[in-house]
Design a protein around this nucleic acid. Structure first.
Lengths: 194, 194
DNA sequence: ACGAAACGATCCAACTTGTATCGAAACTTG
DNA sequence: CAAGTTTCGATACAAGTTGGATCGTTTCGT
């Protein structure tokens, strides 16, 4: 059964997302208003309100595609720990570009709008974790990662470190990421204390 | 040289900070308006604008005292690593209470107002690090922490993990913090990989 | 007494949000 | 082709927030 009535304009939909994406890069989510998005997209604000419940929701949808293109997990047959290293570096690299400030803005928006936080966790955090946790579990099985650690806690630490630099606007480089990975892999204790 | 004119009212100053602090607890920084602060403090908005450049600055000043009271680094003569463990747990415990959401709100505000970020780093991050980095360096000297790690990177990781849970509104408990510390201290590698 | 600075009260323009209304356009069904 | 349905862009509106300004009053030092 085809829906009755005028169909949703794909052109408007695409134009709105494109305008949002551009404005996010230029001014950040903090200064993003639905008015500017509508103007640039050649749409009207009522169209935006019809399809998205909040500013955060628009920004989220506009950002997701970009992120999903930028971050890709390609297994290469190394041991799991080596693969995890590569993943972390690629994430840190992505955050170093214009994507970083956008992510920081979204995290900020999540603090003022619970719905945006929900979208963020559902559409970004959860899917990513669903990919990476099995990788870490494989590392525990192939012997490259010791068994007593919880994969989710590993992710809390690593993404936490990256978010930390992001939110405090501390630029990162490969040397920093190597330092983080070194600590994560080897720990800070002079001798194993377990 | 005593300043000429009517001196700044300590009563107003204190009342404004108190009102800010209360409103932060009740509604969070996202919903904090200078109007509400002024009303509750029995002051006028012009007084607020006279002394503080932004909403973030007021929230920062109101939060700093509270945080500085809540978090105290008391050396107890253990080895440095043990002392660091205690510090982390006390921070995590503080973030578990009503201070946590306030901190998350401030981090969010930092993303939209560079001046607030500057205040945050100058008055909170930097002083804390100035306390803890020597502790970690002592750990390297007393042999409880291996020499090749950078103290600052350790802090990026640990505070990153705590911020991560804070921003994603994931409640933490002692078991989680123990898991983080375990990974941090011992690493995730099954065998030391140098 | 006088000037200087801070105070509370009030007003104002500009901007953003959320909602609503309107006629025109696009598409399905009969 | 005609009627019904839904979206579209344009516009208007109330409510809330921001940042700044003015005004008369209050509290100091000189």
């Amino acid at each position: 059964m085809a829906p009755v009535g005028r169909p949703r304009s794909d052109a408007s939909h695409a134009a709105i997302l494109k305008a949002t994406y551009e404005l996010l890069r230029e001014e950040g989510l903090a200064r993003l208003t639905l008015d500017k998005v509508a103007s640039r997209a050649g749409a009207s604000r009522s169209t935006l309100y019809r399809w998205w419940p909040s500013r955060g929701a628009i920004a989220m949808e506009a950002t997701l595609d970009m992120l999903n293109q930028e971050l890709s997990l390609e297994p290469k047959g190394d041991n799991a720990l080596a693969e995890f290293r590569r993943l972390l570096k690629s994430v840190a690299r992505a955050m170093r570009g214009s994507t970083g400030p956008i992510m920081a803005g979204i995290l900020a928006e999540c603090q003022r709008d619970p719905e945006t936080l929900r979208l963020f966790k559902e559409n970004l955090v959860a899917p990513r974790r669903a990919e990476v946790v099995p990788l870490l579990e494989r590392g525990i099985q192939d012997g490259s990662i010791r068994p007593s650690v919880a994969p989710h806690t590993i992710l809390d630490l690593t993404f936490g470190a990256i978010y930390h630099q992001l939110l405090l606007h501390v630029p990162t480089d490969d040397a920093w990421m190597d330092g983080v990975i070194d600590i994560l892999v080897n720990g800070i204790a002079a001798k194993p204390t377990a």
